[in-house]
């Protein structure tokens, strides 16, 4: 589904990703772990198509298309979803209005029927319940004045509504208490299916207790330095990140 080959990315002339190779197949859940500044979030942003990231080498193919030829909305319509680490606050735009506009843009692009307001509400309300969110959320301005936890839930809600093929969750677990974490995990697990892939970007192993990954990759200083199964995450939990880089050119360049 997703093939990343020798991906090099820099920001304002500074190299951040220095040769990433990664294959994600349908039905798989991958976790990308690593310390702050290792390039995890950069990878997530580049896949979603944010500007300001210069791809200097390498390629990314998604469903046999060159991802870099597509603007952000075309990626979304092709089924890529990024749950933002810091979701934007957009005053004056109601959550429901936004979600329906987004859903129908995607339906239209795929030649599917648009959803009317009633069907839409029905569709959303089941998802809200799953995430223990009340209906009031739909009528508040998009993320405006939301707590950190509410913003993260709202990202998961969008994912459930938009039903992407490839979901990338950027540090969705950060700043969540254990209850909220379980709710979020429930949402993500509900999305697991044989034709959908999920990439979890996270600093901690904690999330992986609730969402069991098929593969775990450790990113450090812009490269994947280890890959393994979920035992790798356990190992990291025990030993921290330091042991990985004995002798490696490990840069702790926190933002």
């Amino acid at each position: 589904m997703l093939q990343i080959r020798n991906l090099h990315v820099s920001v304002a002339g500074k190299p951040i990703l220095k040769g990433i190779d990664l294959d994600v197949g349908p039905g798989e859940v991958h976790a990308i772990m690593g310390p702050n500044g290792s390039g995890k979030s950069t990878l997530a942003q580049v896949l979603a198509g944010r500007s300001g990231y210069e791809v200097s080498q390498g390629s990314v193919r998604y469903l046999d298309r060159d991802l870099f030829l597509l603007p952000p909305e075309a990626r979304a319509r092709a089924g890529i979803f990024l749950a933002f680490q810091y979701p934007m606050e957009i005053p004056g735009v109601a959550n429901a209005q936004f979600l329906r506009t987004a859903l129908n843009s995607q339906h239209r692009a795929r030649g599917e029927a648009e959803v009317d307001a009633f069907d839409f509400l029905e569709h959303v309300k089941g998802k809200l319940a799953l995430l223990e969110m009340d209906d009031g959320f739909l009528y508040r301005s998009l993320n405006e004045g939301f707590s950190g936890g509410e913003k993260k839930r709202n990202e998961i809600l969008q994912m459930l509504v938009l039903e992407p093929r490839l979901a990338i969750l950027d540090e969705t677990d950060s700043g969540l208490d254990i209850d909220a974490l379980q709710v979020v995990a429930r949402g993500v697990n509900a999305m697991r299916s044989p034709d959908r892939a999920i990439v979890l970007v996270t600093h901690y192993q904690r999330l992986l207790e609730h969402i069991v990954p098929d593969r775990v990759h450790v990113l450090a200083a812009g490269r994947i330095v280890r890959s393994g199964d979920r035992d790798l995450a356990m190992e990291l939990e025990d030993k921290g990140y330091g042991w990985l880089n004995a002798g490696a050119d490990f840069e702790e360049d926190r933002p």
Binding site: A48, G49, R50, S51, P71, P72, E73, R75, A76, R77, F81, L82, F84, P87, M88, I90, P91, G92, V93, A94, Q97, F98, T101, A102, L103, S105, Q106, A109, S141, L142, Q158, L162
Partner: peptide, 30 residues
């Protein structure tokens, strides 16, 4: 209009024009 907000909307599948219109409507809505 905030370029980050535009990107956020586009990453959810709205084309640039629709994202912009939504932002302007939101702006007026306030």
């Amino acid at each position: 209009p905030d370029p980050d907000a535009l990107f956020y909307l586009r990453s959810r599948g709205l084309d640039a024009a629709a994202a912009r219109r939504l932002l302007l409507e939101g702006f007026a809505n306030e």
